[in-house]
């Protein structure tokens, strides 16, 4: 029961981060500014949701941990590559 509750809390927190971090995408700020918020939503929010899923089905933990690690790794590298490639652009959103 407590695990179920904890899992729901994790997923809700992740969804809140998703919503909060995705919202600036429709604004008119520079891509780099949006990238900071996407790192909150897509990396941290998704990790929170994955931990929620992990608490729900602990028997599949090896694959879920692998996905958790590769999620953090790939999203961070993508953020770095996008930041590196989009710089030097005029920054009018």
């Amino acid at each position: 029961m407590i695990l179920q509750w904890l899992s729901n809390a994790c997923i809700s927190f992740g969804l809140f981060l998703w919503l909060w971090g995705t919202w600036p995408l429709v604004g008119r700020r520079s891509p780099l500014y949006k990238l900071h918020f996407l790192s909150v939503s897509d990396t941290l929010g998704s990790m929170a949701i994955m931990i929620g899923v992990l608490l729900r089905i602990p028997r599949e933990w090896p694959l879920l941990v692998l996905a958790l690690i590769s999620l953090a790794l790939w999203n961070t590298i993508l953020g770095y590559v996008l930041a590196y490639c989009s710089q030097g652009e005029d920054s009018d959103g």
């Binding site: 998703w18 995705t22 995408l25 891509p31 949006k34 990238l35 996407l38 939503s41 897509d42 998704s46 999620l71 999203n75 993508l78 996008l82 989009s86 652009e89 959103g93």
Partner: peptide, 15 residues
């Protein structure tokens, strides 16, 4: 703006 589109697509993929 092309980079806004790229960011949106990256976000869609993860989600």
């Amino acid at each position: 703006h092309i980079w806004s589109k790229m960011l949106a697509f990256a976000s869609i993929a993860t989600k």
